[in-house]
Design a protein around this nucleic acid. Structure first.
Lengths: 200, 200, 200, 200
DNA sequence: TATGAATGAGGGTTCATTCAT
DNA sequence: CATGAATGAACCCTCATTCAT
């Protein structure tokens, strides 16, 4: 790797990290490209060498960060001794929500303007060298399960929407309840949905 | 009501209506206060006599519009002959989503930055002279029901989050499915949640 | 006239005068809007209250200045005792060129990107309260003349193009000759054209 | 010629051709050096090995292209059987204008900022291996003519200015007339000038 | 109350030029 | 000779907000 390629990676990383810090600490609308480059220690023009605009860098951050989020949750899952898909899904849900509760700004970044399309893209994009493709993992989970579900992808979509939306409200606004009180209820609702989708 | 007060109401209404038109037709970020006052036919300074800023007027619009949305759905509900709370909730859900599908820009306006707190405020604010306080109505619905639910308000919160979030994705992005295909699935999931919360 | 209208006229005049000074002293491409407003003592936004962009203000300046140029030449013409159109045209040509020789930067401003359409517009636009419409004056001149010309407007177009183009080269670049040496030759050529167009 | 020199000539040609294409298709101000090198397939730094800046390359293009223009017109002239200088001049004028009418962008490139000095330089610069020095050819034309002219170079200057200036207006703006209608008038005017300069 | 001219900080973006490789 | 990543000054333009009328 030449000295230039090294430098290139450094600048790109610096921009991504700085953007993340600023977006999460003061919000994306309140962050200007000027702010980013100043803090990253690069020239303004350099930004446009790597990104189209502010929203380009945001999308890349969302993909990267949400991927990491799932990766960690999955790692933890492997350490547990859980046997039903229901239990596994609920474990990951709780784990991710608790992680986000500790990083509410990360949540803000990820949640706002997060579409299902972007989410799926994020889930199948390997930002790092990791071998994890989460959609694939989840799919496998359902395949290996004894209990079968009608339309599992759509069911997952509904669960994700409910959990993320309610979780966001709870973590950011403490409304209608703080996360600790909400979690058991969410578990309750998730189980309700999954039972309904179960093929008996 | 004096002529002055009348005039005041006229200006205020003109500003609200114009804002709504512009926000829904070209987006809130693409709408400047200049645009609003020009179209409303009032002076720039006048805007600041009635509203703090663009986001102040937006919040008032959200309250007003979502209230109307529920009011219409409720009116329609009364014409139907439905007896279980489950059926009533699902009827309103479908009605509102279909209404929003025809006004996706209204959906965009309402959904973005809509918090539970703001939602509750909207539901209890009578913008018009109507007597309807929806939270009260829903509460009554549950009270009169033979089937009882554990923690009905929280259950409703989860349902609303799931329905609005998934509905938004479906209507705006057609992801993962268009609304027509999603509705039966949503009904399915809602029934699953409600059954789980049922007290037997 | 209210205090505001007074102020408005003042700002507009200040912007026009400042632009003219800067355009002629350092060129239009080298003049930024920032330069103009700084020198004019108004805020940047104010510029856009009166003009669309730099080229809008330039066009208005061209119209205004070329009109003045002709007006002065015509005034001087009236003091002379010239009887043929040929002599009158040549008198005005010389007068204008000599005037421009003393203000070569004005020439640069007017000449660059000056189209016949813009020229005609300038000639019929009364920037001041003056009653002079030059196209009309020239037309009248030809009508009153004993000597008649075939297609006088087109002949004038050709003369104007030749005189302005050659005059520009001579005044700005001293090429192929300084103005003093060029003028008799131009007179010569103009008379040649006019004789050819004469109806005998 | 070594392989290196060959390569050098290739790059230079590529830059010149690309610049010409871009300048004529989208205008010189709308063309950046980035555009040029990208299309030419060379590195940015390479540009500066051959040219000082955008205007350097433009001047070289003007010289090259206007030379070619005259060369073609002259070639065509040799095929005709014309005997008077007047006829020859008019033939070339028409030929060049019609050629330009088919390439108005070339006209824009050549005309803007074209000075008599640059024109003379272009006329005496042999860009290709051709032996043609047009000023010399024109001079010879006058020498061999039976009809003699007072100050032929200056007469030519006036004619060129008039023809190019009026031609530009006609071709680019169709003002005051399209080229087809203007050509006979120009011929008329040119003959008028030449007759006036004739030594009887 | 109502006006709307004036403000000016701040935004995003471009691009000629340099220089380490 | 050739490269192209990096620069950063300079540009145009928007717009929320103010305040004299």
């Amino acid at each position: 790797m030449g000295k230039w390629d090294e430098n290139k990676k450094l600048k790109l990383d610096s921009l991504l990290n700085t953007s993340f810090e600023l977006f999460t600490s003061q919000g994306i609308n309140q962050t200007s490209i000027s702010d980013i480059v100043k803090k990253a220690g690069v020239a303004k023009g350099t930004f446009y060498l790597y990104f189209k605009d502010k929203y380009d860098i945001r999308n890349r951050l969302i993909a990267r960060k949400s991927n990491q989020l799932f990766a960690i949750a999955y790692e933890e899952l492997l350490k547990e001794d859980l046997h039903t898909v229901e239990d596994k899904i609920i474990f990951m849900m709780k784990h991710i929500l608790m992680h986000l509760a500790e990083n509410p700004m990360l949540l803000s970044l990820i949640y706002k303007d997060l579409s299902w399309a972007l989410f799926k893209e994020a889930m199948t994009t390997n930002t790092d060298d990791s071998e994890t493709d989460f959609l694939q993992i989840i799919t496998k989970m359902f395949e290996e399960s004894d209990v079968k579900y009608r339309n599992p992808e759509l069911m997952m979509f509904l669960i994700v929407e409910m959990v993320s939306s309610a979780g966001y409200s709870s973590i950011v606004y403490k409304q209608p309840q703080p996360l600790d009180d909400l979690l058991p209820e969410l578990e309750y609702a998730v189980r309700g949905i999954m039972k309904e989708y179960e093929i008996k």
